[in-house]
């Protein structure tokens, strides 16, 4: 399915789920998300991670609503908990089936997102290892001067932002010397199709969710 369409479909469903309280629909969506997730053959560790970590917020919400609100509404508690899993499972179903570049290409070609947004963000994502190293270096520079920097220390952010400014500058220059010119048309190495079948699939999925929301308890 077309990556942009897939992304928007999941976003729409996630927002809809946030404003409705149908346990059965949530559970159906969780099941769908789980199937899609298993389809990508995740490692045992990834799967455990995806299933266990959300249990903390989900459990906390459910317990609070069920045990500590005046109404002791355990039904709504289950709705909230399942909602967390809808977000996580559908959300990761998108990211696990769509490489960043494919999504960027799709957004550029199918949604006419300016290329500078798509590739600027990708360039930043690819700097992650360097960002992690820089944060470690700043903290070490602090330790060597007798200063412990933590997430509440303005200087840690200050130094990191100075680095970011210089990286952004250098990366933009590098991209420009790789021929990138803002707002100039580009050719496409890989065409991301957006077919009638994609539209039909997206529309029917959305319709199905609407029907379920109306028809199911």
């Amino acid at each position: 399915m077309n990556p942009s369409l897939k992304l928007f479909l999941v976003l729409i469903i996630s927002v809809e789920v946030s404003f409705t309280s149908k346990l059965t629909v949530n559970l159906l969506l969780v099941a769908a998300g789980l199937i899609l997730l298993l389809w990508t053959r995740p490692s045992g560790l990834t799967l455990t991670h995806l299933l266990l970590i959300p249990a903390i917020p989900a459990g906390a919400l459910a317990l609070t609503v069920g045990a500590f609100t005046p109404a002791h509404d355990w039904f709504f508690a289950a709705v909230l908990a399942s909602r967390v899993y809808v977000y996580v499972l559908l959300g990761s179903a998108v990211t696990r089936t769509t490489p960043p570049l494919t999504l960027a290409r799709s957004l550029e070609q199918n949604c006419h997102l300016p290329a500078k947004f798509a590739y600027g963000t990708l360039a930043a994502i690819n700097l992650l290892p360097r960002i992690i190293r820089a944060v470690k270096t700043i903290k070490a520079a602090g330790q060597m001067r007798g200063v412990t920097l933590s997430f509440w220390s303005p200087r840690l952010y200050f130094k990191a932002i100075l680095s970011a400014i210089s990286w952004a500058d250098q990366l933009a220059q590098a991209m420009e010397s790789h021929g990138f010119v803002e707002d100039q048309p580009r050719s496409q190495a890989q065409v991301i199709p957006l077919t009638g079948r994609d539209w039909a699939l997206g529309a029917s999925a959305l319709l199905l969710v609407q029907l379920a929301l109306v028809a199911l308890p």
Partner: peptide, 28 residues
């Protein structure tokens, strides 16, 4: 917004994410 600004904005977002990765543990 020029390319440079967009990279910088995304970098800032990611840097904050990296720094308060500790925030995740804090949250849990």
């Amino acid at each position: 917004y020029h390319l440079k600004d967009i990279i910088l904005l995304a970098l800032i977002g990611i840097i904050f994410g990296v720094i308060y990765y500790a925030g995740d543990f804090l949250y849990n």
